[in-house]
Structure formats: structure tokens, C-alpha cells
Simulated assay, not measured.
Amino acid sequence: MLNVTLDFRYIVDCADFYRQFAAKCLPGAQFGANLDALWDSVTAEMALPARICLRHLPQHADHAQFSAIITTLQQAEQELAGLLQLKID
């Protein structure tokens, strides 16, 4: 199982999230750094099963900027029916 932790103490903005996501989940792959690319990567390209933990998101000074990303990941979790686990703490 792929286990990935993205720590929002070290993520400045959405562009930084996409960089870190690609580096940890899709090493060496091309990544478009947008919501469509995130969906495609999680549902079709990333090694599954997988667990993605988003640490310290609620404490981020501007966590609202990540709402579309979080929604996309939550929808992918539902779509993949158990192959993807998303944890936010």
C-alpha cells in the first residue's frame, strides 16, 4: 500500500501542494498541476491501494485555498470505494 503524508506546515499554496503531491505519489511522471490532473492521477495513475494523510491542514493560515483540492480527493476516495483512504488531521 502506498502511504503518503503531506504536511501543510510545509505547503505554502496550491502550486506547492501539487509539486509535493507529484513528487510523493507520481515520482518521475508528468503532472499537470491542476484539479483535472489530480483526479486523473489519483483515479488512474497512482499506485493503489493508497492512503493519503493531510497533516496540519486545519492549522494552515489559509486552508480555504485548498478546498477544491480536498473536495477532489474526497470524491476520488468515494469513486475508488476503499482503494483510496484520505485522512485529514
Rank of each mutant, 00 (worst) to 15 (best):
Q75R: 04
D36V: 11
A23H: 03
G28D: 03
T43K: 11
Y18C: 05
L2S: 15
L80H: 00
Y18Q: 02
D7N: 12
V12Q: 05
S41V: 13
A47L: 15
F8C: 05
A47I: 15
A50S: 14
A68S: 10
F21G: 01
F17T: 01
Q75K: 08
Y18G: 00
A29H: 11
L6E: 07
L26K: 01
L6D: 08
H60W: 06
I70H: 02
Q75M: 05
D13V: 06
L84H: 01
E45A: 13
L6N: 06
I88G: 00
K24E: 00
V42D: 03
V42Q: 06
K87Y: 04
C25A: 05
A15N: 11
F66D: 03
L48F: 14
F21C: 06
C25I: 03
N34A: 10
D89M: 02
T5W: 14
Q74K: 04
A29F: 13
R9E: 11
A47V: 15
D16Q: 07
A64I: 03
Q20E: 05
F21N: 02
A76D: 02
M46C: 12
V12D: 08
A44T: 14
N3F: 15
L2A: 14
L57E: 03
Q85G: 01
R55H: 11
R9P: 07
A64F: 06
F31V: 09
D36F: 08
P58H: 05
P49L: 12
D40I: 11
C53N: 14
P58K: 09
L83A: 01
